[in-house]
Design a protein around this nucleic acid. Structure first.
Length: 131
DNA sequence: AGCATGACGAGGT
DNA sequence: AACCTCGCCATGC
C-alpha cells in the first residue's frame, strides 16, 4: 500500500487522481492538462495527453452531470479551451466567463493569473493582491 | 490483430 | 509565428 504517493502510477489511479484534482479547482480558476498530469504523477507531454484522454473519456458524462465535476476549468497550456473540435468549446468558454474568466479575441485567458495550484488550497480568489 | 484517432505539450526547424 | 516530431494510452472499426 504504501505507495499511492510514490509508487507506480497505474492508469487507474492516474485517472482517479486527475479527476480528484479537477474536482478541487475553485470557481473562476483553471488548471492545464500538463499540470494535472504532473500532479498526478505523469510529467511531460505524454502525461498531458493522457490527462486529455481522461477528460475526453468523460465528455458525455461531464455535460450531463456538470455539478459533479467542473470539467470546464481544464484548459490547455496556451490558455485556450481545447474542446472546439468536440463541439462544446463555446459552451466551455461561456461557463468560464460566467465564473469571471475573460477570453481575448484569440481565445486566450490570463493563465498566469488564473491558473490554480493545490498549494493555494483555501484561497479561492485570483492572486490579484500579489500583483 | 493492426491501425487510426483523440480535451496535450515541449523542443526543434 | 507556423509548422513537425515525439511521447503516451484507450477505444473502435
Amino acid at each position: 500500500m504504501a505507495n499511492d504517493a510514490l509508487g507506480e502510477v497505474t492508469e487507474a489511479n492516474f485517472r482517479q487522481r486527475v479527476l480528484a484534482l479537477v474536482a478541487r479547482i475553485p470557481p473562476g480558476r483553471v488548471m492545464t492538462y500538463g499540470q494535472l498530469a504532473l500532479l498526478a504523477g505523469r510529467p511531460g507531454p505524454g502525461g498531458a495527453r493522457l490527462a486529455g484522454f481522461v477528460m475526453g473519456s468523460l465528455a458525455g458524462k461531464a455535460q450531463t452531470d456538470e455539478e459533479a465535476l467542473p470539467w470546464q476549468r481544464v484548459i490547455n497550456a496556451q490558455g485556450r479551451v481545447s474542446t472546439h473540435k468536440l463541439g462544446f468549446g463555446d459552451v466551455q468558454e461561456h461557463l468560464l466567463e460566467a465564473e469571471g474568466v475573460t477570453f481575448d479575441e484569440s481565445g486566450r485567458c490570463d493563465l498566469a493569473r488564473l491558473q490554480w495550484w493545490p498549494e493555494e488550497e483555501g484561497r479561492d480568489a485570483p492572486p490579484d493582491a500579489l500583483l
